[in-house]
């Protein structure tokens, strides 16, 4: 058998086009932000740095908005800002969820029952409503605080899915073997369960990040975002607030919409691809 690792990775990626396409799109968005920063003066993302309401031209490739932000700079600054908020909330959410899921599913009993009840109740209440209540208490947030607020509800869904996965794993024979050979609870979690769950947790991270970005943009569009930062969601808010669509300023909303849609499609494809990686049983059907 002379299959090199490099060869098999390439071979696998060929069989999983969704993952390649998704990660490729994300990479392209990041490159856009990085290269953009080098080529464009990002200070023009601030108001009053250009004439208002200019359609796309050689000087302003994506046009300018009502208060004279250069929309190309706004996109270059806003894209990584929005991605970062989502990723931070996603990591915090999935991290907290993993701890809860492991603790609850492994030790069972009262702890688990409480965790399950809180998750069941929490998932019935739309998280955007909880986020709105938090945001109105702390008026005027910056993007990092935004991520923390979104993380406050981002852990609910991953807790449910990771918990049920841990429950099914702990019934496997190798966990019994570990237990019989004298491993303690914490040791079994760290050495036996975690390594097997990592692909699953990463797949969850992608979904949670997508949900966090959805929540962030939703809150921003409602007017609860960081008003002095040019994120993608805030751009949507300004468009809605100033009736930019019916005013005919198509360039104002087109670029943020296109980038947000690309982000969601990229994360969706990555998640489909990760699912396939984490859950080989799906392989025949998709």
């Amino acid at each position: 058998m002379e299959i090199s690792t490099r060869h098999s990775v390439l071979g696998y990626l060929r069989r999983n086009p969704a993952l390649v396409l998704g990660l490729g799109l994300l990479l392209a968005l990041l490159l856009f932000a990085v290269i953009g920063r080098l080529l464009v003066d990002i200070d023009t993302a601030a108001p009053l740095s250009a004439p208002p309401y200019r359609p796309p031209s050689a000087e302003y490739p994506l046009g300018t908005d009502k208060v004279g932000r250069d929309l190309l700079s706004v996109m270059i600054v806003g894209t990584p800002l929005t991605l970062r908020v989502g990723l931070l909330a996603g990591v915090l959410g999935v991290g907290f969820a993993s701890v809860l899921a492991f603790a609850g599913a492994y030790y069972g009993g009262f702890v688990d029952a409480v965790i399950r009840l809180v998750v069941d109740v929490g998932l019935t209440i739309p998280s955007i409503l909880i986020l709105i209540l938090i945001a109105i208490a702390l008026r005027g947030v910056n993007p990092t605080e935004m991520a923390l607020i979104v993380a406050a509800t981002a852990w609910l869904w991953p807790t449910r899915t990771i918990r049920s996965q841990v429950l099914s794993l702990k019934e496997r024979a190798y966990v019994d073997v570990a237990r019989m050979s004298g491993m303690r609870g914490r040791e079994i979690i760290v050495r036996e369960l975690m390594p097997n769950l990592i692909p699953f947790i990463v797949a969850n991270l992608v979904n949670t990040t997508a949900a966090a970005i959805l929540a962030t943009i939703g809150m921003e569009a409602l007017g609860l975002g960081p008003t002095s930062h040019p994120t993608l969601g805030m751009t949507i808010y300004w468009v809605i607030l100033h009736a930019g669509v019916l005013g005919g300023y198509w360039w104002w909303w087109l670029s943020p919409v296109v980038i947000i849609v690309l982000i969601f499609i990229a994360l969706y494809l990555t998640s489909v691809g990760m699912d396939e990686l984490a859950n080989p049983r799906l392989r025949r059907s998709v």
Binding site: G218, A221, I236, W253, V261, F264, I265
Partner: peptide, 13 residues
């Protein structure tokens, strides 16, 4: 994969 309201912006236009 697209949030309702972004689709809404496009339809509105």
């Amino acid at each position: 994969a697209i949030p309702y309201y972004l689709l809404g912006l496009i339809l509105l236009f």
